[in-house]
Amino acid sequence: MLKIEGLSKAYRTGDVALSSVSFRVPRGQIVGLIGPSGAGKSTLIRCINRLVVPSEGSVMLGEIDLTRLGQRALRRQRRRIGMIFQEYALVERLTVMENVLSGRLGYVPFWRSWLRRFPPEDVRRAYALLDRVGLLQHADKRADALSGGQRQRVGIARALAQEPDLLLVDEPTASLDPKTSRQIMRLLTEICAERRLPAIVNIHDVPLARQFVQRVIGLRDGEIVFDGAPAQLEETTLSTIYGADDWQAMRREHDEQDDAEPSQRLSGAEA
């Protein structure tokens, strides 16, 4: 479904964020992208839908090379790529419904979006999605009246309203507490399974990644240093990705967190 070939990004300052990254994602697969901050995870995700313009390489979504499109064609392709953000990136002063419907903006003419008169099937789909993420009764509330977990659900509904062929998820749980994080990750994996959607999930929380994704790509200094099943992730690999000290610190922190709320622990997730 998604084929990335030799993708590189160097900023004008000379900083190299990505160097020659290549991988493929088949339909229905959830890929967790792990690595320390500054490894280029966020840049990689943004290079796919060109919120950041890559310097070299190609991004093939199906048969189309996204890196070679003009503005109009790029907008057309962006409709196929849903994106979910770290701090939700909702428009707080709009209603929940408007936020979900904003996923349809690429499909409707300007006057419809201006008058908030979306086609009936879009509205129906939006209601269905709000029901799916469990927020049906909140449709007319303003987005800033919701809690963090609820806001991220709106973010998910907005991305799904696009009827995407690919989901890009940028640190979906970074601003959430551990319990809500797991709920959001579970919702994401269920939805991807229902729709056979491929997804790339940036995630700094390795144990959470292990629990929910089918494949892990480890990034360090803009290069892929690991690509395989979560079970294959070994201490030595993680130490190379994060550096030995940081990895030990992260693990200890996670253990303490789990000791604190043992009842929340999911059984058999490590398998």
Binding site: L51, A89, L90, E92, W114
Partner: peptide
């Protein structure tokens, strides 16, 4: 961030203005 999110849905610049920028400056 909302502007980034709205452009990522494939919205036109005028729609980004309408959905992401205008609501933030209305007050």
């Amino acid at each position: 961030k909302p502007g980034e999110a709205i452009s990522a849905t494939g919205a036109r610049p005028a729609q980004v203005l309408d959905y992401a920028i205008v609501p933030q400056i209305v007050p």
